[in-house]
Amino acid sequence: MSAGLLQQELRSRARHLSAFFVLGDPTPRISLDVMLAAVDAGATMLELGLPYNAPCADGPAIQAASRRALAAGTTTDVALELVAILRDARPELPLNLLVYANLVHSRGPREFCRDFATAGASSLLVPDVLLEEGEELRAICLDHGLDSVQLVGPRTPTPRLAAIDAACTGFLYLAALQGVTGSDPDHAGETQGAMQRLREVCANPICLGFGLRSVDDVARAFASGARIAVVGSELARTIGEASASGRDPRDAVAARCRALAVALTAS
């Protein structure tokens, strides 16, 4: 089913720590260094968000990251260049794109998928397109060798989970909480229940994100059956604080990633 290299890339290890960054945060140049530093410090996968000025699924930390990136001139073309450079630098690294629908729509879904697949992206997650609205886009992804990643929530009904799994070629991304990115995970029981339902009905690898901050959160994600754990808002906050206080965001992000990567080897 897989359109591209993603499943193969994912198979390279049992667990992945995925670091989410808004491309171009705080500037395109520094962003590139920050992402490479995260990988050198232990992130085994990257999730790359295109900055957007109406990010309705994101909390304050990633909204601020988007604002920084846009203010620094990160256009879709600049994001494309960053992806190409990352791919050259790390040929085996899974690169999942997270892009709001209007940015895909604006470039034209066909052009968007072609350009980012050519640049070296592995897969695409569009957080604001429902299963039913995404059929055409998923077909275009397949045509261009981009796997499609599907978001599900802790309250997605089981039959719908199965339908989404069937439409997905990359991995299923479970939001660990019913909320926006970076929120406090206050429904831990609900997440565990959803993980169990996913494990029962889904064939694709499971990724857990939204609200994961600490090495304990990441370890718990793996223990509950996730193959991929995503940390995003925490890293965006780290970049924001470092930039605001004149420290090097590369060092700050590398330190965070080194601490989080401990969960990859913990039993």
């Binding site: 397109v129 978001l151 929530g153 997605t156």
Partner: peptide
């Protein structure tokens, strides 16, 4: 990216996160 829900010719749809689908 033509919509499937609540269609007004080529406009409308439910372009939201899956987390809002049940609601």
């Amino acid at each position: 990216m033509n919509p499937r829900f609540g269609v007004f010719d080529r406009y409308g749809g439910r372009f939201v996160s899956e987390l809002l689908a049940p609601a």
